[in-house]
Every structure is written in C-alpha cells, then in structure tokens.
C-alpha cells in the first residue's frame, strides 16, 4: 500500500506491506535508525515517537496507519548541531549510559514538557513509566528532565 508520511519535516512516499510496523518502516525503509527496538511486547518504549502530536510506541502501530501523519523522531529534536535544552540536560546529568533507550526517553520527556512545562518528580516518573532503561536506574533521567522544567 502507498504510504505518505512527513517525518521531522521531510515527506516520504513508500509502498509498504500492511503488516509492517511503523518502527520497522522508520528504521528499515526510511533509514531513520534513531528509534530503537528493545522488546516485542510493547513494554520498553525505545521506539517511542510523536505522531500528530501524540506520543506512541511505534511498534504497536502499523506503518499504513500513519498514512498522512506528521511524525517526530529523535533525529528531529536538535536544530542541526544545536542540542535542545533537554538533550543538553541529559548530558549534564549523566542521564544516559548505553544510549539505547535514550531516543525513546527523549521523546517521552519532550511530550511531557509540551503538555506540562513544570512537572513534579512524580509526574516525570509517571511520564516515563512506559520507557525502560536498564543502565541508569532512572534517577539521573528524572533529574535531567526536572532541570529543564520551568
């Protein structure tokens, strides 16, 4: 089926099998490998992206369902080499180790901060509950998000 999506401002048109998950479409068809796969049951959130303003796990959505949508992924956060305050905070607070969960964490935190620019620690933890990190224990991630809260 023909699918047209706009990802980080660029429009792509591809012919895809209906069975293809959005995460595979992004990674394999569009070569946007920043979003990752960490599980096969929708638990880990490493594939989190923002579709038409809504944070979703791209492993639980078919690519064809995203037809016509505007998608934001980790690759679109920074302006060129200019990291966003959130990305800089992750570096400052050592909120990443292996970096595999990081793209999904950043998308979840970005979605949170848009909706609630001044989240409490508890609200941050709730916003990240769908993103698994196995390296950091989350403390520094919460710290990083808190540091950019207004």
């Amino acid at each position: 089926m023909d699918v047209t999506v706009t990802v980080n401002g660029t429009t792509y048109e591809r012919d895809v099998e209906p069975r293809k998950l959005l995460i595979h479409f992004l990674r394999d068809d569009l070569d946007l490998t920043g979003s990752h796969v960490g599980c096969d049951t929708g638990n880990c959130g490493a594939c989190s992206v923002i579709v038409d303003g809504v944070l979703v796990k791209s492993c639980m959505l078919l690519a064809v369902q995203a037809n016509g949508a505007s998608i934001e992924t980790v690759e679109g956060l920074a302006e060129g080499d200019e990291l966003t305050p959130l990305q800089l905070a992750f570096n400052e607070h050592h909120a990443l180790q292996c970096g595999y969960c990081t793209p999904g964490m950043l998308m979840s935190a970005t979605a949170l901060l848009r909706e609630n620019p001044s989240p409490s620690e508890d609200e941050i933890a709730k916003a990240l509950q769908g993103n698994i990190c196995r390296c950091t224990g989350y403390w520094n991630i919460v710290e990083a998000v808190k540091s950019v809260a207004k």
């Binding site: 989190s48 979703v56 796990k57 709730k126 916003a127 769908g130 993103n131």
Partner: peptide, 9 residues
C-alpha cells in the same frame, strides 16, 4: 492502565 503511550492509543 499501562503507560502514557499505551493510554494515548
């Protein structure tokens, strides 16, 4: 129920 992403969909 589950998490933000799942609740959104």
């Amino acid at each position: 129920i589950a998490d933000v992403q799942v609740r959104n969909r």
